[in-house]
Design a protein around this nucleic acid. Structure first.
Lengths: 226, 226, 226, 226
DNA sequence: GATGAATGAGCCTTCATTCAT
DNA sequence: CATGAATGAAGGCTCATTCAT
């Protein structure tokens, strides 16, 4: 039968040796897990392969992580933290709204269509049915939070009179989706093996910015007209 | 000694019985497979469970489908055929472009955020790493073909002077993505257990149509102004 | 849709653990395999039975041997090594040719009609159709090599003028076959459950030696006549 | 567990429909079984393949033969009958003893090293452990009876003063084994894929006859000397 | 009587997890 | 603490046999 993270109460909290966990070894294990999960997906990845890739024994795996699922969740968490740096910087740097959105959009697409994010997405989506908590958490801490952040930026611009938006959160997601159009889906389905080219990213994001500003921009945005 | 003893390839032909396949039983099996695959995903679904869900013996499964993968592929095929009916009808029915796009978009979202399409998406994305052919084919016969169809419709409207579009395929995917904004992703990640409400669909699609026409519409579209 | 979805070959290396194989456990497994293969033949022997007979878990079997065939081949190898000791000693020990041949023949028959050699023969012959490599290798390292060794001994005697032989290899096989006459075949077909008695062995081998020397002996062999 | 012909009492004599068995269909089935058993061996042959090769349904197989083993036994019986014709003719035809033995030996080797006899031998030897009755019967009705027949011929020649033999049965088997030297064993083990050439057969049988007559011939045999 | 679709026990193999060293 | 040999449940798949048509 299905094993679900929350369905398994892990009856006795056994050898939860928390003392003396070597952070280096933990990182080492997560690196190995990263390689194997990305290459194989969740189900096809075996703990033996992960142990081998990490250069530790299988037993050690279980010292650091209660089971395969917890190892995977920990990996997702680490990677999320590692990557969400800097993408949002573009939003505050550039005084020109179009430039700011383009920089942000390009950075976002580079990140989301990159090998790791695609793999992680694939895996989490693939197990979402069996591990709804993982999926929800991934969604809330990732895409949702990102959109929220952008929506705050947009709300700011509304206040400044540059944009006219009823629902800033919807607008934020729309912008994010526009930026990924034609690029994300074929990557997720593995119909496109390579990340999109820089040229393609710029082209698509430019189109997204144009449509977004056409839809939400005010006269004030189009610049000081005589 | 020899490293590996290769068994001589069996000379007598394997009888892939194709004749006498009861279509009802085939449907019955696919129904069972549908239930189990959707509930568990590809890897976690077991052929035993599928057999039980279908009300047939495990052996019968293998009379109708060569193996687990072929069963899954056949299921995807059946469902695609069953569902791609009628979504595109909206494109030709309505003389008003805004109405046509809205109808189309709403139908599409209803389909793509419905339980089955979400499950199928999840599964195919989940196995895309290990079965790239399946992923690619799913992409090409599904999303890509759909976008292509819409792009032809848009190209038509360009000829009619109603729209001004450089890359109709990109525009088509942009529209499709806009229609799904805020609704598809949480569904895929199982952060949203229920399909979106009709009201929500109408709201988001209306916003998508508005932005799309703001971005690509010509003066001619806005109607005969005095 | 694609006819067959080829799973991408797993990039991460399979860890064929070779290190840390406990020789005692390996022997234990081979002993169990010996018992079950001999009792059932190759196909009818099940890995479960072998595991039970060896007193290990099924999983352990696969730690030591890649699969059923490799286990079987390893068993054959072990047994061959264990048994080909000492049979050829008789050839050099005895100065009298008749005695030497008789000792050798008796030892050979004792070996080849013994329980193990009969079982191994039965199994290898039984699978020879499907595993020609195994059969050929068994033949070449066993019967063929044995005959070759004897033929060298005979060629020596030819040089000494004691024998007159055109084709020493043929002569060697003839002698070997004569020694087994009436004893090997009923054993192989299980028409004779017990190995032949010592008395019977001596009788048949004596007859073989007599006929062989009658056919190939020279006057010099019959001894210095007045 | 092992299935053994005699160990399985076949509790209720069920549908042993004996009436109306079409001899043509029976032959047809045995022909199919012949092809498949020879190509695959006993265990690897499947009843489906046999049914397909015979051009009948699987159900029909079970009308004519109780199970796989009985089908196989019936096949062996039929083939034995079909083949033991004519080999013994040589024994009475030729007035010259050397010629008679050579003709007989050559015919025998041609038969025993031919594709069918080799296959049958392999299969029976392979299952002899699990089906001792089959092995014994095969032995007694085949090799043993053949040797018996030759021994009677030899006893005759002893009476005629041409041969001097203590144990004619042993002598018969010795002759038979000599005829097959270097040819039967590699065939059985599939180390020699083709039946031996006529030239080789003549060479080896000539050598066998020579040795046999050297060992057992009387002065009378060597011909009327002055 | 013949058919062949259906059965289900059983096979080989894998792998997450444990535990003695 | 780390190790990795051992476990055993479970998975995909086959095939001898049965039975409704």
């Amino acid at each position: 039968m299905t094993k679900s993270i929350e369905a398994k109460p892990r009856p006795v909290a056994r050898n939860r040796r928390v003392a003396g966990m070597d952070p280096d070894k933990r990182r080492q294990i997560l690196d190995g897990a990263h390689a194997v999960f990305n290459a194989q997906g969740f189900d096809a990845a075996s703990m033996s392969e992960i142990a081998a890739a990490a250069g530790v024994s299988k037993g050690t795996l279980y010292v650091y992580f209660a089971d395969k699922e917890h190892l995977f969740v920990a990996l997702i968490e680490r990677e999320r933290e590692a990557q969400k740096q800097g993408v949002y910087a573009a939003l505050s740097d550039d005084p020109d709204l179009g430039h700011a959105l383009a920089s942000f959009g390009e950075g976002l697409v580079r990140l989301l269509c990159g090998d790791f994010a695609i793999s992680a997405h694939r895996i989490v989506i693939g197990v979402a049915e069996r591990m709804p908590d993982l999926g929800r958490e991934f969604y809330e801490r990732g895409p949702k939070q990102g959109a929220h952040r952008l929506s705050q930026f947009l709300a700011d611009k509304v206040k400044q009179g540059l944009l006219q938006i009823d629902d800033p959160y919807l607008a934020a997601v729309q912008f994010i989706d526009l930026c990924q159009s034609t690029m994300l889906r074929p990557r997720l389905l593995n119909a496109q093996r390579e990340p999109p080219s820089e040229k393609e990213i710029r082209r698509v994001v430019a189109s997204a910015v144009a449509m977004f500003l056409a839809g939400y921009g005010t006269k004030a945005l189009r610049g000081p007209t005589p």
